[in-house]
Design a binder for these strands. Structure first.
Lengths: 218, 218
DNA sequence: GTTAGTTTTAAACACATGTTTTAAACAAAT
DNA sequence: ATTTGTTTAAAACATGTGTTTAAAACTAAC
């Protein structure tokens, strides 16, 4: 049980970071929730930054691996030159399913992970952004490449923006899903789970991807 | 020039908060950038929380006022029972134009403001969220009500979720617009301004609002 | 010119943070 | 049983934080 300390730290850090952000979570609350000595973090991870990167790596590693596999299987199967909403739904569906599978396999909450990603972008944490793009940039680009084939109407720059709009939709929705679920249960007495939210998001993203590319709203 | 101190503090706090978040920005950096004594913040705003609320109020006050006016003008004009993409575009366009107008009138950057809103939701800051819903909740609901009339296919709960997806798209895209613009200029040698981004976002949101409401992505 | 109220200033306070240090406890191999 | 390397433990360190205090400077009215 020598490395149980490391896992306990990672488990505690994950939920605390997701709940209160990286900066607002102190090492002391993490180590106390993990029932571990304060110095253990610096001993095993070097620094708080090291811990933050380790927490994200533990999820993003399996995720990108899973995603890569499913994407290349999809690429070699069919749908190659087809254009349409169904193919877009399929691609976003692969992304959604990858997230859910990895979350389920590793006993993690998808909402927690989405909040982590959101934190990585909304809080400054320059080191994290660099680490993520360096480590997982290629998987990112692979997904973009496949998606690009089903959005041939627009040029590269227009696609770039459209892609990030959709990414924002996904991240923001997932990361605020827990509080939205709570509001929704209180307000409409209907409870939603992440599966339903994901299904809905896939449809929304696939439709949004096909919005016209020019025009003025004035 | 007695209240110039207050304005200088607000100006400095606004850009620092947007750039580095509420927690990672210290009162000392704010007061030094504002060329004001450290104690001035506690004297004029009571506390750091008070300053945070004042910063958001300075933008959200004029914004909701502007938005309310334009919305009621729109409501009394026409389009009342019509359904379609054009009406959705019109409503989102009103929201977009309100944001831009207020930003321009008060010499503020829209991206800075969007980042503030994003911070208010992604960082814990429970006091801010309470303050915002208490102060500006009605304007929020008014916009929702009008939008609801043009999305009659879905029930209230489905609309609730769809609405927040779109909101996430807007906030996330605007708040990360500055870094995306930079990447885009380096990568594609094309520069976009916020007007173009807003136009595009309006089209995307109007299209996404019409996505089908049920179905599985598996 | 004096006074009363407001604003600014410099210093100190109380506290929480990440990190380091030093020694103790432990594990496994010789 | 001793030794070696690794992990844990408690304490201290250095620093940055929001806030408060008390005096000084300023403003405006009488």
């Amino acid at each position: 049980m020598t490395s149980s300390t490391i896992d306990r730290i990672l488990d505690a850090a994950e939920v605390e970071f997701a709940a209160h952000g990286f900066v607002e979570t102190s090492l002391r609350t993490i180590t106390s929730k993990a029932k571990v000595n304060l110095a253990a973090v610096n001993y095993h991870f070097g620094s708080k930054k090291g811990l933050i990167q380790a927490v994200t790596d533990r999820f993003l590693g399996p995720l990108t691996q899973n995603l890569q596999a499913q994407l290349s299987a999809y690429e070699q199967s069919s749908h190659k030159s087809t254009i349409g909403e169904q193919e877009l739904q399929a691609l976003f569906g692969i992304l959604a399913r990858s997230c859910q599978q990895v979350a389920q396999q590793n006993q993690h909450s998808l909402a927690v992970f989405a909040r982590l990603i959101n934190m990585a972008y909304s809080q400054s944490q320059g080191h994290l952004r660099k680490h993520l793009t360096y480590q997982y940039g290629s998987s990112f680009l692979y997904f973009m490449k496949l998606l690009r084939q089903h959005m041939p109407v627009m040029n590269n720059e227009q696609f770039f923006w459209r892609f990030h709009y959709l990414l924002g939709t996904l991240v923001f929705a997932l990361s605020s899903s827990e509080s939205l679920v709570a509001i929704c249960e209180r307000e409409y007495e209907v409870s939603r789970n992440l599966d339903q939210i994901m299904s809905d998001l896939v449809l929304v993203m696939a439709r949004a991807a096909q919005a016209p590319i020019t025009g003025e709203y004035k």
